[in-house]
Write a protein that binds this DNA or RNA. Structure first.
Length: 467
RNA sequence: GCGCCGGUAGCUCAAUUGGCAGAGCAUUUGACUCUUAAUCAACAGGUUCCGGGUUCAAGUCCCGGCCGGCGCACCA
């Protein structure tokens, strides 16, 4: 069948509903419009027919009378899911449904498969994720969640631009994967005869741009980590990383809470919402608490990075955490915080003053060299962002990398790799700078009120089908 | 990677203790001039995820595999 190469339409479901709300039952507007979309429902009744057509903005009824509709006999044979272009008068039926009274119409594309049960839609996860195009038509909630993700990214960009951050792009293919603790994906470049790794974070490149003189930069991009999948983890995910020269971590916390609450305001129109049935507020400011104070509260005694390592190890063992020989007091404190506090942090909160041992790229705290000026924000029991005053001392940075190498030798296969070029960059001088990373997928889950990261990724990673 | 649960018509789901594989919607055909998941009638639709096994008999029980969900581990 030949279908048209284009179709001129001048109205949408939502625009018609807004413009013709005043029509009374049975009233005809006298105005002819053209609309286009998919037939979602079809009700025929002898010499008349009603179709529910859905376009990108919503649904509008098509009302066809045999006496007035071209090729009426063909119109009633349309299939659910078929794309149609329709021209006709805007009317409200006797029963009160705003409609386009079909004069002429054209099949724009046929749907050879249906879009699931017209009441229940498609609920099979495998089908929904492998054929998201069908899911998007069958389940309006799916489309709304991905729309909210898009609106979130737009808002993030606009707010970063408004704060004078410049958007940049850095390499995804790298000779070493660094800037975070994670197993990378490996690939190979034939012409260079070199093994390359997909980036696990853009962090070091971005700081080199600050060394190069860009005061405020951000990158909104995909990173790749060769790790397990879960409702909160996809092997490729989108991260916002942002660096501001002359800021410290306190400045960055202020920026993050304004950014995130502002994005919620932009997308949802409010900062007061619900996540999975429980009240949740994005509103700034967010509380700032040190890791040591939260952990102390949870275990019922004062603990800190200065607590003897053996005592922290005992507290961990009491909580069934296996303590590795290579862990110092700092790592033990961080683990203790994670097992006792993390999942209970519902409303957004900043956890601050992370041990040096678990923060190889963060600058030492001005009041305590065993701590760093680092924060992570938590929301709904999960980490949402990570930031710190950046370590800009090349000598200390080399020492930190050396410590990572020691951990790697001790069997930690996620210890950070040393990056000589990065150290050389620091030797050219990184001004005092604060950096930030925010998991966009995690934020999208909160904003779209979705329980799984797969719901806010159009095509989540699935196991390829075999056999 | 490990554990638990699931996979039946295109879609959503039934099927008692192991005893003839079903319904609604969609599709096809017919009726119907204001429907709203329209309604009514009829036809058709199956490798019960795949491969073995036990049994007179397997959607159901056992073993192996595939895919998915959740949990653990890893991590953001």
């Amino acid at each position: 069948m030949t279908t048209p190469y284009s179709f001129d339409h001048n109205a949408y479901a939502a625009s018609l509903r807004a413009a013709y709300a005043h029509l009374t039952d049975g009233e005809e507007s006298g105005t002819t419009v053209s609309v286009a979309g998919r037939v979602m429902l079809l009700r025929t009744q002898g010499k008349l027919a009603f179709a529910t057509m859905r376009d990108s903005t919503g649904e509008i009824q098509l009302f066809a009378l045999a006496a007035l509709c071209d090729e009426f006999d063909e119109f009633v044979k349309l299939h659910l899911g078929d794309w149609v272009g329709v021209t006709g008068e805007v009317v409200r039926t006797k029963r009160g449904e705003l409609s386009v009274k079909v004069k002429s119409w054209v099949l724009l594309a046929a749907a050879l498969h249906n879009f699931g049960d017209k009441w229940a839609g498609i609920s099979d996860f495998d089908l929904r994720y492998r054929h998201r195009e069908a899911d998007l038509w069958a389940n309006p909630v799916s489309r709304q969640s991905l729309t909210r993700r898009s609106e979130m990214l737009r808002s993030v960009r606009e707010r970063c631009w408004a704060a004078n951050f410049m958007e940049v792009e850095t390499p995804i293919l790298n000779a070493i994967a660094t800037g975070a603790a994670a197993r990378p994906f490996k690939t190979f470049h034939h012409a260079l005869d070199s093994e390359l790794f997909l980036r696990i974070a853009p962090e070091l490149w971005l700081k080199r741009l600050v060394v190069g003189g860009y005061e405020r930069v951000f990158e909104l991009g995909r990173v790749f980590r060769n790790e397990g999948l879960s409702p909160r983890h996809n092997p490729e995910f989108t991260m916002l990383e942002l660096y501001a020269a002359y800021w410290d971590y306190e400045d960055m916390m202020s920026f993050v809470e304004e950014l995130v609450s502002g994005v919620a305001q932009d997308v949802l129109g409010t900062t007061e919402t619900e996540y999975q049935g429980r009240a949740f507020s994005f509103a700034a400011p967010w509380p700032r608490r040190t890791m040591a104070s939260l952990a102390s509260e949870a275990v019922g005694e004062a603990v800190s990075v200065h607590t003897p390592r053996e005592h922290l190890a005992k507290l961990l063992a009491e909580r069934d955490v296996e303590v590795h020989a290579s862990w110092g007091a700092g790592r033990c404190l961080a683990e203790l915080f994670e097992v006792t506090c993390e999942e209970n942090l519902w409303e957004p909160i900043f956890v601050t003053e992370y041990p040096v041992e678990v923060s190889p790229l963060a600058r030492r705290h001005r009041d305590d060299p065993e701590l760093t000026e680092r924060f992570e924000s938590y929301a709904a029991g999960r980490e949402l962002s990570n930031g710190f005053s950046e370590l800009n001392d090349p000598v200390d940075q080399r020492a930190r990398f050396d410590e990572q190498a020691r951990l790697a030798a001790a069997g930690d296969d996620e210890a950070m790799q040393i990056d000589e070029d990065y150290i050389k960059a620091l030797e050219w001088g990184l001004p005092p700078t604060a950096g930030l990373g925010v998991g966009m997928d995690r934020l999208a889950m909160l904003i779209a009120d979705e329980p799984s990261i797969r719901e806010v990724i159009a095509f989540p990673t699935l196991k390829p089908l075999r056999d």
